[in-house]
Amino acid sequence: MSEIRETESERAYRVLRGNIIDGTLEAGLKLKVVPLKAQYNFGAAPLREALTKLVGDRLVVQETQKGFTVAIISVQDAQDVGRVRGLLECEALRESLRNGDDAWEARIVAAYHRLRLVENRVPTEITQSDIEARNTEFHDALLSSAHSNWLLTLREQVYLHHERYRLLSRSNLNLERNTPAEHAAIFEAALARDLDLTCTLVTEHINRTTEAAIKML
C-alpha cells in the first residue's frame, strides 16, 4: 500500500498552526505571505491555503484590506476557552467512560505510561515537544470512546486554543503545581469508570492551567 503524502499546503498548515500555538508566531502578529515564504520556505499558494484554514480554526483573523493576523490572547479569552473546554471535555469523558471497552482501557494505560516516563525525566533528557505530544496523547485517549464526531471536533478546536494558554502557563517558573499527580489521579479515576470524579479532576486540571496562564498575561 502506498503512503499518503502530506501536501505542501497541509504541511504549511500544520507548521503554522504549531507555531501559533507554541507562541513562535506571537499573538497580534501580521502574517504576510512574502516574509512567511522566506521564513518557512513554502510557496505562496500553499501559505494562503494554510492561512485560510487557520482562519476557520479561529487561530488567525482575516480583515478586509488588512490581511491576516495571529488571533490575540487575553484574560477574558483564556477564561472563556478554559470554561468551554471543560464543558466539552466532561461531556466527551462521560460518553467515553460509558462506552470504553478493553481496547480503550489499553490505550489509556499505554498513553499514561508514555506520559509518566517523560514527566519523571529531568528536562535535559527530554524535549518539550515530546512532553506536549504525550500530554495530548493521554487526554485524547481518555476521550477515544466517545462516539459523537461533532463533540470531538468541537473539543479538538477548543483544545488547540487552550493549548496556547497552557504553553504560556509553563513559562511561569514560580508555578507551584504537581501536574504528574494530577494526571495520575485522572488516570485512576478513569480506569475506575468513576464518571463524576474523572470529570471533576479534569475540570480542576483545566482550571489550574487557565489560572496559571492568566497570571502570565
Rank of each mutant, 00 (worst) to 15 (best):
residue 96 S to M: 01
residue 96 S to E: 10
residue 96 S to L: 01
residue 96 S to Q: 00
residue 97 L to Y: 02
residue 99 N to V: 00
residue 100 G to D: 01
residue 101 D to A: 07
residue 101 D to Q: 05
residue 101 D to K: 04
residue 101 D to F: 11
residue 101 D to G: 00
residue 103 A to C: 13
residue 103 A to T: 12
residue 104 W to A: 13
residue 104 W to H: 15
residue 105 E to Q: 01
residue 105 E to V: 00
residue 105 E to W: 00
residue 106 A to W: 04
residue 106 A to T: 07
residue 106 A to I: 10
residue 107 R to Y: 09
residue 107 R to E: 06
residue 108 I to F: 05
residue 108 I to K: 11
residue 108 I to T: 08
residue 108 I to G: 00
residue 109 V to R: 13
residue 109 V to M: 02
residue 109 V to H: 06
residue 109 V to F: 02
residue 110 A to E: 13
residue 110 A to K: 12
residue 110 A to I: 02
residue 110 A to M: 08
residue 110 A to Y: 06
residue 111 A to I: 03
residue 111 A to R: 03
residue 113 H to C: 08
residue 113 H to E: 15
residue 113 H to Q: 12
residue 113 H to L: 08
residue 114 R to I: 03
residue 114 R to H: 13
residue 116 R to C: 07
residue 117 L to G: 05
residue 118 V to P: 09
residue 118 V to R: 07
residue 118 V to H: 11
residue 118 V to N: 02
residue 119 E to P: 04
residue 119 E to M: 08
residue 120 N to S: 05
residue 120 N to Q: 10
residue 120 N to C: 07
residue 120 N to M: 10
residue 121 R to E: 14
residue 121 R to A: 03
residue 121 R to M: 03
residue 122 V to E: 14
residue 123 P to R: 01
residue 124 T to P: 06
residue 124 T to Y: 10
residue 124 T to N: 06
residue 125 E to W: 03
residue 125 E to P: 01
residue 125 E to S: 01
residue 126 I to M: 03
residue 126 I to Q: 07
residue 126 I to P: 13
residue 127 T to F: 09
residue 127 T to E: 15
residue 128 Q to W: 10
residue 128 Q to V: 12
residue 129 S to N: 12
residue 129 S to F: 12
residue 129 S to T: 11
residue 130 D to I: 03
residue 130 D to S: 09
residue 130 D to K: 01
residue 130 D to V: 00
residue 131 I to C: 08
residue 132 E to C: 00
residue 132 E to A: 01
residue 132 E to K: 02
residue 133 A to Y: 09
residue 133 A to F: 05
residue 133 A to M: 05
residue 133 A to N: 07
residue 134 R to A: 10
residue 134 R to W: 08
residue 134 R to T: 14
residue 135 N to G: 01
residue 135 N to E: 06
residue 135 N to V: 05
residue 135 N to A: 10
residue 136 T to K: 05
residue 136 T to A: 04
residue 137 E to S: 09
residue 137 E to A: 07
residue 137 E to R: 09
residue 138 F to H: 02
residue 139 H to T: 15
residue 139 H to D: 03
residue 140 D to F: 04
residue 140 D to G: 05
residue 141 A to T: 03
residue 141 A to E: 03
residue 141 A to Q: 02
residue 141 A to Y: 02
residue 141 A to H: 00
residue 142 L to I: 11
residue 143 L to P: 06
residue 143 L to K: 02
residue 143 L to G: 01
residue 144 S to M: 11
residue 145 S to G: 07
residue 145 S to K: 10
residue 146 A to Q: 10
residue 146 A to M: 04
residue 146 A to G: 13
residue 147 H to L: 13
residue 147 H to N: 14
residue 147 H to V: 05
residue 148 S to Y: 08
residue 148 S to F: 08
residue 149 N to T: 14
residue 149 N to W: 14
residue 149 N to A: 13
residue 149 N to L: 15
residue 150 W to D: 14
residue 150 W to G: 15
residue 150 W to L: 12
residue 151 L to P: 03
residue 151 L to S: 00
residue 152 L to R: 12
residue 152 L to A: 02
residue 153 T to S: 13
residue 153 T to I: 11
residue 153 T to R: 13
residue 154 L to V: 11
residue 154 L to Q: 15
residue 154 L to S: 07
residue 154 L to Y: 14
residue 154 L to W: 15
residue 154 L to D: 15
residue 155 R to P: 09
residue 156 E to H: 14
residue 156 E to D: 15
